[in-house]
Design a protein around this nucleic acid. Structure first.
Lengths: 395, 395
DNA sequence: CCCCTTCTTTTCCCTCGTCAATAAAAGAAG
DNA sequence: CTTCTTTTATTGACGAGGGAAAAGAAGGGG
């Protein structure tokens, strides 16, 4: 049993209350009647559940709706008071710790980054503690308590147990990060995979609100994918899921670090793009930003590299669409800076390669400031606060 | 509202009762205490739910366990009385109607096939009615009532509404098959996609019992895939899901009828194999059986065709494993007759192409008599009988 | 014959959510 | 200005469903 530090606990104990709160949280101000409709509960149940939540300050009566219909008693919308509680989200990358301070509605209230010299668990913990301490002092200025910390790590993470099973990037195995960090920072800590955390943020606070089946595709150094099926984030039986980056796109393609050839990541990952641009132009391109510049400058051969990358990503998304039939695909990640360079290819390839009505799935892109990853971590902390027993809550 | 004919209805009204019954149904004879453990309910709740089910004859006390431990009151296992109710399953193919009679435990009690001359809805309905009538007379001899009919059709099927949205094979669009068939046969009818139906059978009565995440891959004329995620069969937001057959394996591969190149089905589907064997040998091979014979006879080039097919299937499965991380993959279908010809390739490719621990997923094969498809349909009827309101019940 | 162990049942209780009736807050109608 | 209509919110009685605890049942062992 991981020690749970003594902090305020959320006053919604019944499943119905959590469901009602979550609905209001992600679907904005809603009248009680509207909540009842969306949760398939009776209006009476909503009233009863809402009352203690208002008393505890988590919900507030919203200003009456301007565009109210002429007839009947005016509706009395309710919304979550974001300022009632604060949360921290921390993203651990190979060389940096990125932290954000968010409110209960997962709006960013502060941010902090710190370089990471050593990737071993202890130094990482220390670095996390530093970032957390700084953010806590920011929180202090706001005069609101921090109710939980979420940590996002790439790799195989067991959120229920709070253990990092295996992170190739950090070279960790079976590190009980939640427990360790919780002892260090004195707050409840939730640990989850980074892409899943981002997916949680979209599910509760982003473009996935109200959807029971969607996918988040991240384009950057790696190509990742978070899946929501039946309203729940997919975690995979063995900790692996959403590895769209290692879907084979062309068995004769370039070798991938995973040992295969022609993975999406081996064609459209940042490193792969830089390499291909270098090969195509002879210019000693250093990073993705330089490659994008070359492309925009019209250097011959560079656009073709991005076109191929777009095709690879499109095929990866088409595969997801064929297998799961999501309602929407949300494309995100640092690589979106170059989105104009492959948008068309992604769309075209998806349309061509998706089977039947799978091609109908809506594709959205969202710009991703780097703090977004940390915000995802905060979203998992918010989930854990609201539904402490459910390791992978549904919509 | 589809008319529901007057028949006996299942006496488990509460969610807990359904859950308890389902657990006993698929997990064999269980003591009440064991049921309580597996459903996370209290022993008292189990006793209360079991009583009316025994009174109604759906559950029976099993013979006491032989290998009982020396201590304490002997356990009193309970099991489902399969003979208490009968169901029909009907699979509609392009040229044939296949029907089975099963008991409540989905054990086959009879079978009937009838050729299909015309694929239009009306002739198909007539043919279904004929097969159903014959099976009903078989049921009559058993002296047990038939409580529902399941119909499995390939294509985009909306089970909740009982409508075949689009079936390319039959060239149907928006046919309200459940309603029509129900009127014709005078019994409740459930309509579902064929691969999903097969998946349901595995989930409740086969190799998927107790698993919350697994995949069923069917190898035959087409290559299909049923997915169970979070304990529920995946249906897809637009009716498409599990289209593993149209996952691209080699963008430079042979053209597929779907318009792309190098789909799994274009390499490993029955038609594709026959074509490739013909090309490789010059022999005028007619069907898959002949191709298998040639392969076993050692005709040069034929085994290579199967090897390529196995590789394609393996890549498809690896893709599923990478994206969803299932606990198990169940390979099934008529094409299994040639399983020895590609077993090795499937395994090897899966191991190589799966990312990280995704390769750990267990792969099982099950021989598939053709009635199995119809049995899947019966399984959906059993589900509908037990949980009438839930179109896609969980474990 | 009594005790011990384990499974099952009973009894009581409590929680949660629905139902139905009521209150509340407007504008509309007269 | 009063009364009616319409819609939203609240209240309180009721009941179903499941849990806790204790008793009962069915053996074996001392």
């Amino acid at each position: 049993m991981r020690p749970t530090p003594r902090v305020e606990t959320f006053p919604a104990n019944t499943p119905a209350a959590s469901q009602i709160f979550t609905t209001v949280l992600s679907q904005g101000p809603l009248t009680r009647l509207e909540v009842a409709r969306r949760t398939a509960l009776s209006p009476a149940a909503v009233t009863k559940a809402v009352k203690p939540l208002i008393e505890a300050g988590y919900l507030v009566e919203d200003a009456a709706d301007e565009a109210r219909p002429a007839l009947g008693r005016p509706a009395n919308p309710v919304r979550v008071d974001g300022g009632r509680a604060l949360f921290l989200g921390v993203k651990v990358t190979g060389d940096e710790i990125i932290g954000v301070l968010t409110d209960l509605c997962c709006r960013t209230r502060g941010a902090r980054r710190a370089p990471l010299a050593d990737r071993a668990p202890q130094p990482v913990l220390t670095a996390i503690a530093d970032v957390v301490a700084e953010l806590l002092s920011q929180a202090n200025e706001l005069g609101v308590g921090v109710h939980g910390v979420g940590v996002a790590v790439s790799g195989d993470v067991d959120r229920a147990e709070g253990v990092v099973r295996y992170s190739p990037f950090l070279n960790w195995r079976d590190v009980p990060l939640a427990e360790l960090a919780s002892l260090t920072v004195g707050l409840p800590v939730t640990v989850d995979n980074d892409v899943r955390a981002l997916t949680v943020a979209e599910q509760w606070f982003g473009a996935g609100v109200g959807l029971s089946d969607f996918a988040v595709v991240t384009v950057g150094a790696g190509i990742g994918c978070g899946l929501v099926v039946h309203g729940r984030v997919v975690a995979g039986a063995h900790g692996v899921a959403g590895e769209i980056g290692h879907v084979t796109v062309d068995p004769a393609g370039p070798p991938c670090h995973c040992g295969n050839r022609g993975c999406v990541e081996a064609i459209a990952g940042e490193e792969a793009i830089v390499r291909q641009v270098r090969e195509a132009t002879g210019v000693e391109v250093r990073d993705a930003a330089e490659a994008v510049t070359l492309a925009h400058r019209g250097v011959p051969g560079v656009r073709e590299v991005y076109a191929r990358a777009g095709e690879a990503i499109g095929r990866g998304i088409a595969t997801v669409a064929n297998l799961l039939g999501p309602e929407r695909v949300i494309i995100s990640g640092e690589g979106l800076a170059a989105y104009d360079l492959f948008a068309e290819q992604i769309r075209d390839t998806l349309t061509a390669a998706a089977f039947g009505s799978a091609a109908q799935c809506d594709v959205q892109t969202r710009p991703l400031p780097f703090e977004e990853w940390a915000r995802g971590a905060a979203a998992t902390a918010i989930q854990s606060f609201i539904t402490p027993d459910d390791p992978h809550p549904s919509r």
